[in-house]
Design a protein around this nucleic acid. Structure first.
Lengths: 106, 106
DNA sequence: ATATTATATGATTATATGCTCATATATGTA
DNA sequence: TACATATATGAGCATATAATCATATAATAT
């Protein structure tokens, strides 16, 4: 782990790691994004499929997909006019699944 | 897992789980809270120790600790006028540590 | 070229968030 | 009691965020 140590032997998180980690958790901190990711985890979906399944506006889904795309948490492929999205970060998806499991067993 | 299934066999996250999970990740989505939690993971600290170590205002630390306390992510004990904080959710701390490790190895 | 369908983008608005200041509360001590 | 120290709280402000509307872009078919 990239880190510095002070005189008390405390490990300090470097700036870049702090940024990446906080951004990643921010992606998972919104109910809409969680629902989208969890849906994609189960099934590759088009934008409209996501919107219909989760009862969201198409633009809302599109905006959130852009967010997730920027963080490389989802990938996509085009088929005609339709674009299919799927998860693209195994580690983050595992974290999400684990947390959902943990929370739902409380 | 508490869940419902629709005709496409898609698991939908129940409202309560969705709330808990998103709140938990929200706690980890802020750099200041990450730094506080990571410090407490290494060493039980008083409010002032946290503030001095991380170069934060005492009030800032106190507000963030209240946030973390409400989610039961930290616990505390009193010793005179000093209050010592420490982590109180092993699962969340493991998630945080794992993510920091993962991100710092990129 | 025009129409249709799917998706993306920009602007706007309402709400949430995090930090700071001033101040309150709590404990211990002279 | 009065004072000092540690921590907590409330209000205000600046910024971030998420949803929505209107509209743009892209691919396809007629």
């Amino acid at each position: 782990m990239e880190s510095k140590q002070n005189t008390d032997d405390l490990t300090v998180i470097d700036e870049e790691t702090l940024f990446v980690v906080s951004q990643t958790f921010k992606a998972l901190s919104d109910p809409t994004r969680i629902r989208i990711l969890y849906l994609l985890y189960q099934k590759e979906c088009s934008v409209n499929e996501i919107a219909e399944t989760l009862q969201l506006k198409q633009t809302t889904v599109s905006h959130q997909l852009r967010f997730l795309k920027n963080l490389r948490l989802v990938k996509f492929r085009r088929e005609g006019t339709t674009i299919f999205y799927s998860p693209d970060d195994e580690h983050v998806m595992n974290t999400l699944k684990e947390s959902i499991n943990h929370a739902s067993h409380m």
